[in-house]
Design a protein around this nucleic acid. Structure first.
Length: 726
DNA sequence: CGTAGAAACTTTTTT
DNA sequence: AGTTTCTACG
């Protein structure tokens, strides 16, 4: 039992042992925030300030929650069972399972993930004859989630214009549909549990009296509903402890409200703010780069991150001719780092390749595969999101919860069993008329669907009392899924994944079940929740040393000896979509800040001049973030991209000006443009550096369209403009 | 009803 | 480019 308080610096110690009162800890990257949080919980318990059952600790990711439980288990002689540690969604689910009746939900309610929610929205839009061009399902989905994240139901949303009024109406119907089918989306878990406690005074008092210490990690990422949710648990005796970093707020797009930090300080912490500013992770140059970059943001609470470490190496900058070229560089460099080149080689698992969007992983994977470097990709399509796995889960969900129409529609005719579009339509009409579920309607009004209903009922009785893995195994076989994929030439992977699902069920232990869902839950119900809430982050090849590939978002909270930040191009990072959003550029910059601060000793910054995206070649300029890192900290590995400074103050960024997709054609590429070609980098005496993105005319008449980044996009006559090849 | 191939669509980040 | 949806045909 060792808390090792002696290893903490004064600020960390103060945060850990704060005796009473609420507190806000502003913790910079690498300042030991997770350690402070876990050590505080251990300290509170060990010193008798609270019993394990009186702790409520909330994180954003399952990974963070698991890590916290593990670290606690190492520090304390208590089992993590009694502790309420988990993600917002996991804990909300736990609460709702325990009080499903009071919350107005069926015992076996199912959780809709993003995919499921979209199909539910589409289905409803169709049944309401909604014009999908005027109200695209995706936008309806976004609208609904945004409202729920603000804590609003349809009746609470002011319907100003006509469009909003329609959206609100749809929102109301959507919630009715969910209620009827016994399902809850992610935001619903939070909102429903919030409403449960705010309405039910007895329950609220019970939990308020129970939770003496409420601790939250990554507080900058909470949305308004989550903040209210936390406050709900805080009774007069409770103490709130929030840890966050405004510079690492990167979830604005899903409703995170950085303002919560300031509001928390005003409402609770009241000046009890502890700043952790010493960085223990990165060497000097890396930290200097991060500090210089983030200084460009106007909206900051402000802090001064420093390190006692030496300067270390400069940041290495690489310019690739293409995305493939960049990927090749990454692969070669990773191989060299692993070999060690005179020093001690790095473990692959201690090296990360980060990118802005998942689509970028493919070209990297290709190069790594070619170089025989083992790698693991995080994010992207996760295990429980794969089609075949979702099919299997749909059978299981129907068995547990027959009213789940989403699942019914997913597998009633998969594998094909003669229930075509027409039969399904008739069944849906019948169900609608009677206000019944599809499963119920299958009994009396569809000869075609009846055998399917029978199959589900047989599965229910055949698996009654069986252990979970055997239930899953039986279902994938009896449903015909395995057989169906075995017939498919390319179905081998899918069969493997289905078999892996049985393993996942076996690995889903008693202990995990209790931590995630509470003590009294059914094994199957708990497993289905687990599948929806934790999309299967940790699958496959565990244990083997492998390079880590992930988006910057999923890298938050992690650290590596060497980090590759790839695709540093205008339009990609910062992403062009973000520039149209309010405070979008600042959020992108915080994202870049998160990426830089993941590195301990070595950091690579790379970009490519051309990139294949969605089947088109894009020509792009280096990211402005690259320029915001001072030159003295960088070492160029490739001849420096000549960048003549434009005279005068910089023009404000123009929306979408920097990044234009352009179909590459032989015609355009081979046309006589007086020595220039599309995609070429050029400089102009007034506008600075740019890239040619289009052309018209030939020879002496030729005009080219040049993207000058922040200076905008201009058409220039080649003969007149003093363009120079760069 | 089921399938194959064509056409259309997407085009950021995630619990 | 990859995925989903549509269309034509057996």
């Amino acid at each position: 039992m060792s808390l090792h308080l002696e290893h903490l610096n004064p600020e960390q110690l103060a945060a850990v042992t704060l005796p009473n009162g609420h507190a806000l800890v502003l913790a910079g990257a690498g300042s030991g925030k997770t350690r402070v949080l876990t050590t505080r919980i251990a300290w509170l318990i060990q010193s008798g300030h609270v019993t394990p059952g009186g702790v409520l600790a909330v994180t954003f990711t399952n990974k963070a929650a698991r890590e916290m439980v593990q670290r606690l288990a190492a520090m304390l002689p208590v089992s993590p069972r009694g502790l309420w540690i988990g993600t917002f969604h996991g804990l909300a689910n736990r609460l709702l399972r325990a009080h499903h009746q009071e919350a107005g939900l069926p015992r076996e309610y199912q959780i809709l993930d993003t995919q499921d929610q979209l199909s539910a929205v589409k289905r409803l839009a169709r049944s309401l004859n909604i014009d999908e061009d005027r109200m695209p399902p995706r936008e309806l989905q976004r609208f609904i989630n945004a409202q729920k994240e603000e804590g609003l139901r349809a009746r609470d949303v002011p319907a100003g214009d006509d469009l909003t009024r329609r959206q609100v109406e749809f929102f109301a119907s959507y919630d009715e549909q969910c209620q009827r089918e016994g399902v809850a989306d992610f935001a619903e878990l939070l909102l429903r549990s919030f409403e449960l406690l705010s309405r039910n005074e007895i329950l609220r008092q019970h939990y308020q009296a129970r939770f003496r210490h409420i601790l939250t990690d990554e507080f900058q990422d909470t949305n308004r509903l989550q903040y209210r949710w936390l406050k709900m648990f805080a009774g007069p005796q409770s103490r709130l402890f929030a840890v966050g970093d405004d510079d690492q707020s990167i979830y604005g797009f899903r409703g995170a409200h950085v303002g919560n930090l300031a509001e928390f300080e005003k409402e609770y912490a009241k000046g009890q703010v502890i700043r952790l500013e010493q960085n223990y992770r990165s060497e000097g140059n890396i930290l200097a780069a991060a500090n210089a970059l983030i200084a460009n943001n106007a909206k900051r609470l402000g802090k001064n991150l420093w390190t006692a470490a030496g300067q270390g190496e400069p940041l290495r900058v690489f310019q690739g001719d293409s995305d493939a070229d960049e990927a090749r560089f990454v692969a070669e460099e990773v191989a060299a780092l692993a070999r060690g080149e005179g020093g001690e080689g790095l473990r692959l698992a201690d090296i990360a390749v980060l990118y802005r969007s998942n689509a970028q992983s493919r070209v990297l994977e290709h190069a790594l595969f070619g170089a025989a470097i083992p790698y693991r990709v995080y994010g992207g399509l996760r295990f429980f999101e794969r089609a075949e796995v979702k099919h299997a889960l749909a059978y299981l969900r129907l068995m547990a919860s027959p009213a789940d129409d989403n699942s019914f529609l997913r597998v009633a005719n998969f594998p094909p069993r003669g229930i075509g579009a027409r039969s399904m339509e008739l069944l849906q009409d019948a169900a609608k008329q009677k206000g019944a579920s599809l499963f119920a309607a299958a009994e009396f009004s569809s000869a075609k669907a009846l055998p399917f209903r029978k199959l589900i009922e047989e599965l229910q009785s055949e698996t009654r009392g069986l252990p979970l893995p055997e239930t899953v195994g039986h279902v994938i076989a009896r449903s015909g899924l395995i057989e169906h994929y075995k017939k498919d030439r390319e179905g081998a992977d899918r069969v493997e994944n289905l078999e892996e699902l049985v393993n996942a069920a076996a690995a889903f232990t008693q202990e995990e079940r209790e931590i995630e869902a509470g003590e009294e839950s059914e094994p199957l119900a708990a497993f289905l929740s687990h599948a929806a809430l934790e999309a299967g982050e940790h699958q496959a090849a565990e244990g083997q040393d492998a390079l880590q590939l992930m988006t910057v978002h999923s890298a938050k909270g992690l650290e590596f000896s060497a980090v590759f930040m790839s695709g540093l191009e205008e339009g990609l990072f910062p992403h062009e979509q973000s520039l149209a959003e309010k405070d979008g550029l600042e959020e992108e910059r915080r994202l870049a800040y998160v990426a830089i601060t993941r590195a301990r000793a070595r950091l690579y910054l790379s970009f490519a001049q051309t990139r294949m995206l969605h089947g088109q070649t894009r020509y792009s300029l280096p990211s402005r973030f690259l320029e915001e890192v001072p030159e003295r900290l960088k070492k160029w590995l490739t001849p420096r991209f000549a960048r003549a400074r434009a005279a005068g103050p910089e023009a404000p960024a123009r929306k979408n000006a920097a990044y234009f997709p352009k179909k590459e054609t032989f015609f355009a590429a081979s046309r006589d443009l007086a020595g220039f070609r599309i995609g070429q980098n050029v400089t102009h005496p007034k506008f600075g550096s740019g890239v040619i993105i289009d052309a018209e005319g030939d020879g002496g008449e030729a005009r080219v369209q040049v993207n000058f980044g922040r200076q905008g996009v201009k058409w220039l006559a080649v003969a007149m403009a003093k363009l120079q090849a760069a």
